[in-house]
Design a protein around this nucleic acid. Structure first.
Lengths: 331, 331
DNA sequence: CATCGTATGCAAAACGATTTGCATTGCCGG
DNA sequence: CCGGCAATGCAAATCGTTTTGCATACGATG
């Protein structure tokens, strides 16, 4: 069980540890025959370099963190869970293929336990303004990239999740058969909301109707959204479609609409952003947008690796967002 | 940005590195005054011990892996995604509070990239017979625990997810207003299926009806389940309730029942196990079981820590499973 | 006064790799 | 025959801790 070390292997192969190291790393020429002998022997002895020793020398933990400032497990959690976790799953695959472990970081108090965590880089999912976790990592000198631009942080590389395009997609789809399209976003200041709101304002201006937008506190979840949507629809009965990027909020809107006798889609047309379980399994199923989160996750990891290595990032092409039309926005 | 080392700190404090180390670890007595000076200085200089160096010395990566042999992202994925990811989220919180990073391991080929991964322990979620990832880790001498017993591996400590109790709960609930309760499980041999099938057999014997159980290949997903359920219901029209632990399969059953003109719940009563999005958002909402996955995750981590330290695990009490009755099983 | 325990701290040896700067050998061209 | 270069490999320093085995000083005890 006690793993053999490079010294033992070197002794067995009749060479120096240096040569063994070079044989594996390829950083210096080693006679092919010698190398073959070493490799064969290593295989037989079950030698694997101790990653801890290697890292002490080379610096680097071999771990990257994936974090979201959205609470994992609190009330508002499930809303995000799908989104974040879909990214996490894809990112884990990509990270491992790049020989990095992906570590999930829950949004604890930065000062408490996070101290023990040593990572080479961090991916922050949809950071908000003055995002705590983002600040925590970047203050430590850990390379950080974000999924969705970090508002107010021009210095943080990010993977564009094409919020403007996504918003246009939803708005135009709704606008095709509706006159007055309203918007409901969240109160936290994330880039996706900011872009969506801007796209909405532009859209309203183009179409020549006065925008009706609402922001809801994210911690309130579905029920809060339902209540707010109800008020909105009562005071603006002219609204015949709603663009509601946050899927949990969209669920709330479904309830509100039913309650008001304007069931989706015939009484009110509805579209949301993230095409997760929530959207797919709602009644009626929600029109949503395929954001290609797997591609996004991969791009984020490569961007992070580039940042860690101080290299110029190679730009990843992410497929444009794709509208998935469902019953909730049927004409 | 270059972090200060223990040597620099020692120099600044006018003591030896040894003393600094002891001051922090408390493994040897250090004069309180000296210690205070060191701590204050460390704080000022922003000294934090280099985890890599520490780990080289002490052994231990500070990371544990969470893995499931169920594919993350393939067709069958979304079915598990909720379950696995809910555990992942809870486990990440607990792990970090124990000063461990939680690493998500996708079910890649064990031999390919996993080699680079060095963890102190691993948690396998609902392993199946001859589970690859479980074998991979345990062959390496990495302490492993499982969530749900590992079939055929008496040596692997596990957190009981109380599958028998859960099955009883569903069966008795269904049996209260139905005569003939059928069972649909998955084809892979996981402990939860095995226990559930046994509980079902016992239940049928008690009630004096002949059991009607079906196993479905998990990779087929919802649609396969729908087809299989349809056949089952056609050939056994006497079935008036179905216990379908796998939530994706339960969704398929919903469709099949509708198709056969026996809509849930009035034409057929239905219950599933994992109370995730799928169950909650189905039409009608599915009766499910609260498995207390947060507690399960915490228990698994503590069990793993105990295994890593070679200690006797302190048994965690996990709340008994709780039935969440919903419309799908209304009388 | 000799001895002994206690309090305090240091030097040096791990931990297991990577990497740098030589050393040796053999061969080639002039 | 000699200078130089390519091929090959090793010794030793390094990464930043933790831990073990001593060293010193000092007061108390017989």
């Amino acid at each position: 069980m006690a793993r053999s070390t490079i010294v033992e292997l070197a002794k067995a192969a009749g060479v120096s540890p240096t040569t063994v190291s070079h044989a594996f790393s390829g950083r210096r020429y080693v006679d092919p025959e010698t190398k073959a002998r070493i490799v064969a022997l290593a295989d037989k002895m079950g030698y694997r370099a101790n990653p801890r020793a290697r890292r002490l020398r080379t610096g680097g933990a071999g771990i990257i963190a994936l974090a979201s400032s959205m609470p994992f497990a609190v009330a508002a959690g499930p809303a995000r869970l799908g989104f974040l976790m879909e990214i996490a799953a894809a990112a884990a695959v990509t990270a491992l293929s790049r020989h990095l472990a992906l570590c999930l970081v829950p949004p604890l108090e930065p000062d408490s336990n996070l101290d023990a965590l040593e990572v080479d880089g961090a991916i922050i999912v949809e950071p908000m303004v003055e995002d705590r976790l983002l600040d925590f990592f970047s203050a430590r000198g850990v390379p950080v990239v974000s999924i969705g631009r970090a508002p107010g942080r021009k210095d943080i590389p990010s993977v564009d999740i094409q919020s403007t395009a996504t918003a246009r997609l939803m708005l135009e789809h709704l606008g095709a058969h509706s006159r007055r399209v309203g918007l409901i976003t969240g109160a936290q200041r994330r880039n996706s909301y900011i872009e969506t709101e801007a796209a909405y304002a532009a859209f309203a201006a183009e179409r020549g109707f006065s925008p009706i937008a609402l922001r809801i506190d994210e911690s309130g979840g579905e029920s809060e959204a339902a209540a707010a949507a109800e008020r909105l629809l009562r005071s603006n009965p002219g609204i015949d479609a709603l663009c509601v990027p946050v899927d949990a909020f969209a669920r709330g809107v479904l309830d509100a609409a039913r309650l008001l006798g304007r069931p989706v889609p015939h009484g009110l047309r509805l579209a949301t952003r993230y095409d997760g379980m929530r959207a797919k399994l709602a009644t009626p199923p929600l029109t949503a947008v395929n954001l290609h989160l797997d591609q996004v996750a991969e791009a984020a990891i490569d961007l992070l690796i580039a940042a860690m290595e101080g290299k110029e990032p190679q730009r990843h092409a992410i497929a444009p967002p794709l509208l998935v039309a469902r019953e909730s926005s049927a004409a």
